[in-house]
């Protein structure tokens, strides 16, 4: 362990007292980027596993999409931690970019997906002026991100699906987003705070 491990950024103000500012500290940038990169590796592994989940679709058509929301986690987790404008888009696109560079069956479309998924969550947080981080807001952001992904995939990958299946797919993705993205982000932030790595962050 180096001496740097014990250095902490001195908080200029009590962390939770001041409203979150629009200015990004270097620490906010790098932590958001690192969350994006870590999930980029998760995305890449999830993409390879995605084919192995195919049998789920034989049980109930499109059942596999109930696992979809793993791809949406950084769009809520990163802004929940750093609380800066643009964090949802930055983290989600960073993760998408890393998984595309590592190799994904969705190629450059990963970037487009990351953009629409991150932008949808970003809009919800912008709507609260980046002031409200309650579970309902996180849930709305998660479902918005899933809705964007749902429309994108409808047009690009499942244009020929029957309409009932499109709706079922949407419902499964929304439930998936509530569990993995909203619930998962809250649990992850709680675990990270307990581990002591979120000192100096509002979360």
């Amino acid at each position: 362990m180096t001496t740097l491990d014990r250095v902490r950024v001195p908080p200029t103000a009590p962390p939770s007292a001041a409203p979150p500012s629009a200015a990004w500290r270097t620490r906010d940038i790098v932590v958001t980027a690192v969350i994006g990169v870590a999930f980029g590796v998760v995305f890449w592994a999830w993409g390879l596993a995605w084919g192995a989940f195919e049998p789920l679709n034989l049980v109930v058509p499109v059942l596999r999409d109930s696992l979809y929301a793993v791809w949406l986690v950084p769009a809520v987790l990163a802004p929940l931690i750093v609380r800066r404008p643009g964090a949802a888009l930055f983290a989600e696109m960073g993760a998408a970019g890393v998984s595309a560079l590592l190799g994904s069956q969705w190629g450059v479309d990963t970037l487009l997906s990351g953009f629409v998924q991150g932008a949808a969550a970003e809009l919800v947080f912008a709507f609260t002026l980046y002031q409200v981080w309650s579970l309902p807001v996180l849930s709305v952001a998660a479902v918005a991100s899933a809705a964007a992904a749902w429309i994108h995939d409808w047009v690009l990958y499942y244009p020929d699906f029957a309409i009932e299946l499109q709706i079922l797919r949407g419902v499964l993705m929304a439930i998936s987003a509530l569990v993995f993205v909203a619930g998962g982000s809250v649990l992850l932030v709680r675990a990270l705070r307990r581990a002591g790595v979120l000192e100096g962050f509002p979360a």
Binding site: R27, V30, V31, A33, V34, A38, L192
Partner: peptide, 9 residues
């Protein structure tokens, strides 16, 4: 990853 990001920052 976050610890390393802090050092990097």
């Amino acid at each position: 990853a976050i610890r390393r990001a802090d050092q990097l920052a």
